Simulated assay, not measured.
Amino acid sequence: MSTNDTDRYEAAAHAMQTGVLAEMHREGVPAEHLDDRTSTGRKHLRVGVNSALVGQAAIASLLIAKGIFTIEEYTAALADEMEKEQRLYEDQLGVKLR
């Protein structure tokens, strides 16, 4: 990653974190859940989830653009993996979730 791209990523990630916090304040999330100094603070967790989703989207977009696979193949694989995750929870909980 070039310095320019690194700077762009860091600036956008910081802005996303600020947006998460602003949204949580607007939603009235209690202050104790906004504590970003702990790994269980809601802001910390939401920023982590958002960052993971952005990374996954970047990889998929790049591979689709390079012709490695199509959006249709990606969507099918995504559905397959989510169904695996569903079955995992069904097995752990001993219930059918759908």
Rank of each mutant, 00 (worst) to 15 (best):
H44W: 10
A77V: 05
A11R: 14
A13C: 09
G19M: 10
A31I: 01
L62K: 10
I71W: 02
D5N: 09
S39H: 15
D91W: 04
T18I: 15
A15I: 05
Y9W: 15
D91R: 10
E10V: 09
G48P: 04
R37Y: 02
L21G: 06
T70F: 04
L93G: 10
G48D: 10
M82E: 11
D80I: 02
L45Y: 02
G94Y: 05
K84P: 01
E85S: 13
N4S: 15
E85N: 12
R98E: 01
L88R: 15
A12Y: 06
L21V: 11
L34D: 02
D80F: 06
A79H: 13
R46V: 14
N4Y: 14
E83C: 03
A65M: 06
S2G: 08
K84L: 11
Q92N: 07
G28Q: 11
V47C: 10
R26I: 02
E81V: 11
S2T: 10
S2F: 01
H33C: 09
R26D: 04
V49K: 00
E90T: 04
H14R: 15
S39G: 14
L88A: 08
T6R: 09
A58T: 06
G48W: 10
I71T: 05
A31V: 03
E81Y: 12
T18L: 14
Q92K: 07
V54S: 11
D5Y: 09
D91G: 01
G48M: 13
E83Q: 12
I64G: 03
L93M: 15
M1C: 12
G41C: 04
A79S: 12
R98F: 13
M82Q: 12
A58F: 04
L34G: 03
E32D: 14
L97F: 12
G48N: 13
K66C: 07
E85D: 12
H14F: 14
T75S: 05
E10C: 07
A77H: 08
D80G: 02
L88W: 09
V54R: 14
E32I: 13
K84F: 06
N50P: 01
R98G: 09
A76W: 00
Y89M: 12
A31T: 01
E83L: 13
M24A: 11
A52V: 08
H14N: 15
R37F: 08
R26G: 01
E85F: 06
I68Q: 06
E72N: 05
D35L: 00
G41V: 00
E32H: 14
P30Q: 00
M24H: 04
K96D: 00
A15P: 02
D5K: 09
I71N: 02
A31E: 11
E10K: 08
K96A: 00
N50T: 09
I71C: 02
V47D: 07
I71E: 07
G94M: 03
R87T: 13
T70M: 03
Y89D: 00
K84H: 06
E81K: 11
H33G: 12
M82L: 13
M82P: 01
T38C: 02
K43W: 00
H33Q: 12
Y89K: 00
L53D: 07
R42N: 05
M24C: 10
T70D: 04
E32R: 14
I68K: 07
V29M: 11
T70R: 00
K84C: 03
E85T: 14
A77M: 09
K43P: 00
Q92W: 05
E83F: 09
L93F: 15
